[in-house]
Every structure is written in structure tokens, then in C-alpha cells.
Simulated scan of single mutants.
Amino acid sequence: MAENMEKTAAEQAPGEARLKLAATAMADNKKLHANGREKREATNFVDSDSVKKIIEEWPATAKMAAANTIKFYGSPNEATPSYLIWHHNGPWKRTVAFRDGVPHDFPEPHTDVLEQFIDYHVPADKVGLVAQLEGSLVIDRTKGEVSVHCDNEGANTLSINMMHEVVTGKRTPEEAREFIKQEIVEYMMNRPAPYAEKFQFELPEGEQWDPDVAVVKDKELMKAVTEKQEELGLNKPH
């Protein structure tokens, strides 16, 4: 057992399992391209007593961030000892409050414990510019998502607004960092700070996937995948 724990699952996966997963994933890929993803409303909520018990022992910043999010958006849709997750809360696609914080010194020292997501496509040639803006912005081009993590929603909103302005060429990363430095002070001092209070652009509607292009054309593999799909009944119309 100890020897196996030093190996990855990828290394130990049987050849049959590898081909089966590839065949299934390619069939699902085709369906998603054709039909998109089924929209599911978040209807399940974790009961408040369970949530309170989970965050009771969390560090102060994480506990406060979670409590603030619960105050405005209600109980989360999912909960583990380490995370609380809300789906489609307010303008956000997803919000995650996490127990274990990360130190972050821009624009002022704080602890990142709240990550929030939107659907947003960042072109490949703009990713480096967003990285120069600040490290808490996370781009997933394939999923068509951008997330940002900080200690509060105002700072997250501000960073997303600046990300958009960098991507669209309205500001350079340096100009956006300077604006964040000023605007976050206004927000924390309870003065007007519109860029930290709401999105200053229309959020994209629907999935913003960037699936890239297929480059694997190996005939032997494609034949094996097709045969496996037929064996599993994956090519039957539904």
C-alpha cells in the first residue's frame, strides 16, 4: 500500500479504463457542443444550524466573511468543514467561503477567504495583462470563468471591474492597480466607491466556454474510441 501511494492514479490506471473514459468523454463533448449544459437552479440549502456549527471553529476572518455572506445571501447550497458554497447568489455565478486563508498584501495586508466567480471570456492574448493586475484573479479559459478571492465582496467586485477594463483596453494593469489602491480606501471608509459596490459593465449571459481546437488525429486511437463508444451504446440517439 505504501508503495502504491507513491504512484499517481494515472500511472496505475488500466488501459481499458483509460479508453473507456476517453470514449465517454468524447461522447459527452459532442453533446455539450450541440446542446450546451442543462441549467440547474440551486434549490437545496444547508440548514442554518449545521452551517453555524461548521464555521464556529473557523479563524476570525473566515468566520466573519462567511457570516457576512450568509447575512446577504442566506444559507449556502453546499457545505463541508472547509468550504461553504453558494450558486447563483446575486450577480455571482458562484461564491465560496473557505476556512483556510491565504495572506495577500495588495492593496493592503489582508487574508483571502472569499472567492467569487462570473462567466467571462478572457482572450489568450489578454491573460498576461490580467496576471499583471493582481494575483487573486484566476482565469479558466476553458470553462469561461473568472474568479477573484479576497476578504470581502467589495474588493472582489472592484478587482473584477478592473479586470474588465484591462481586458477591454480602457486601463493598463498599472493604471488599474493605482485605481484599486484609491477606491478600496473609499470603500472601507464608507464613502462612495461605485467600482467596489456594483459591476460597471454588463455581465455576459450564458456559458463563455473556450474549448480550443482538437489536434489529436491519430487514426488508431479514433478507431478504438469509436468501437468503444459503440460497445457502450454511447452513439445511440437520446
Rank of each mutant, 00 (worst) to 15 (best):
M1A: 12
M1P: 09
E3Q: 06
A10H: 02
E11M: 12
P14V: 08
P14H: 13
E16F: 01
A17M: 07
L19W: 06
K20Y: 02
D28I: 05
D28Y: 03
D28N: 11
K30S: 04
H33G: 03
H33M: 14
H33T: 08
A34K: 13
G36R: 14
R37N: 04
E38F: 06
A42N: 08
T43P: 02
N44K: 09
N44D: 08
F45G: 03
V46K: 06
K52E: 13
I54V: 13
I54G: 00
I55G: 01
I55F: 03
E56H: 12
E57H: 07
P59C: 01
M64N: 05
M64F: 00
A65F: 00
T69M: 04
T69H: 04
I70T: 02
I70E: 01
P76N: 04
N77Y: 01
E78D: 09
P81S: 07
P81A: 04
P81N: 10
L84Y: 00
L84C: 01
H87A: 03
N89Q: 14
P91M: 07
P91Y: 09
W92S: 01
T95K: 05
F98C: 01
D100L: 09
D100R: 13
H104Y: 14
P107K: 09
P107Y: 04
H110I: 03
L114Q: 06
L114R: 08
E115W: 01
E115D: 10
I118T: 11
D119H: 14
Y120V: 07
V122A: 14
V122P: 14
P123F: 09
A131V: 06
A131M: 05
A131W: 05
Q132P: 03
Q132A: 07
E134K: 00
V138G: 00
D140G: 05
R141G: 06
G144V: 12
G144D: 12
E145D: 06
V148T: 14
V148A: 07
H149T: 08
C150N: 13
N152H: 12
N152D: 15
E153I: 11
E153H: 02
G154D: 04
N156C: 15
N161C: 08
N161A: 10
M162H: 08
M162N: 06
E165M: 11
V166D: 05
K170E: 15
R171Y: 12
T172H: 11
T172L: 12
P173Y: 11
E174A: 15
E175H: 02
A176Q: 01
R177C: 10
R177M: 09
R177Y: 06
E178A: 13
I180R: 07
E183C: 06
V185S: 02
E186A: 10
N190P: 02
P192M: 03
A193S: 10
A193Q: 05
E197F: 09
F199C: 08
Q200W: 05
Q200R: 10
F201T: 08
F201Q: 13
F201A: 13
P204D: 11
E207G: 10
E207R: 12
Q208Y: 15
P211N: 13
K217E: 15
D218V: 15
D218C: 15
E220A: 15
L221Y: 14
T226C: 10
K228D: 01
Q229E: 11
E231L: 00
L232D: 00
G233V: 00
K236W: 00
